[in-house]
Design a binder for these strands. Structure first.
Lengths: 155, 155
DNA sequence: CTTCGTCCCGTTGACGCCCATGAGTGCCCA
DNA sequence: TGGGCACTCATGGGCGTCAACGGGACGAAG
């Protein structure tokens, strides 16, 4: 498996460390990503986490912009200045920093949520709430006329 | 890693010195840049800092302008005359000068902000404010119709 | 003689690296 | 089919190292 799937909640210990789910670490290893990079997601209180390929993707996008226009600068500010390295220790744990807590509201526990090519870190309750909202939106979409058949499910 | 990433806040001591984050120093060493060059950023109260390759970036921009226009001359004046060398001491610290304080409003602490090929120095609160503005602009961009898919999340 | 800049050293707190524990799970064999 | 064994993984804690920080000593310049 080469994608980040499913979710799990892990506890933060007194030293501020939390285990990255073993399954996620296996995906990283398979991809040859030794380092983790985390970004503060734009419109939700979560962190987007992945290997350095996560960063490459954004930088390619920035390269398309006029390097002296404000948009390019904002993008750089976001992906370079609003990101952080997460170092895995020998036991597959990372250390929570204030940088991460501020944006997410994470305190004692972290929800790791697979998102395919990357994963997210959430405060468990907020994740729960956001998941309900997302489901509700999709459900509404499904019951509207003229929409595609996405999420009709196997009937 | 060969790019300046993430951010950190360090304190200025009584002698006016401040540590450049070890991670940034490692990047400089990797690039073989022995000297630091600082410029007052154009549209924000920050310093752009990097090796001498930083100048290339600005000279490239000047080259885009009409050499007979006032603009080009202003830019040259700005980037060649309004820069300063920063000397690293044995412990990886630099000394804050009035040149740096004036433009940035830095007093007791400095936020070092990775920007990819260079990094910036900010007064921490102003950095925080500017970061929020940039995020808001990107968020607006993202939610506008007809825009590209930047920051939709790496799918 | 004073002041400023540079070099050097000591302290402290955070972080990386190590090992121990314990719960849960799958597997094997009786 | 049930019991037990081995393994994996999350979690806790000890300890050494290093970076950030503070301050003193020395030398050059005013």
């Amino acid at each position: 498996m080469d994608r980040f799937l499913s979710s799990a909640v892990n506890r933060i210990d007194q030293k501020g460390r939390v285990s990255v789910p073993a399954h996620f670490r296996a995906v990283l290893a398979k991809r040859g990503e030794g380092e983790l990079y985390a970004l503060r997601a734009l419109d939700m209180p979560a962190l987007d986490v992945g290997g350095l390929d996560l960063l490459d993707r954004y930088e390619q996008r920035i390269a398309q912009e006029d390097p002296f226009a404000q948009t390019a600068d904002d993008m750089s500010f976001f992906c370079h200045g609003d990101g952080a390295f997460l170092k895995l220790d020998g036991d597959g744990r990372i250390t929570m920093t204030d940088f991460m807590r501020e944006h997410t509201g994470i305190e004692g526990e972290v929800a790791f949520v697979g998102r395919g090519p990357f994963f997210q870190m959430w405060e468990p309750r907020r994740f729960q709430a956001y998941r309900e909202e997302a489901r509700a939106r999709l459900s509404r979409l499904r019951n509207q006329p003229g929409t595609t058949a996405f999420i009709r499910g196997p009937e």
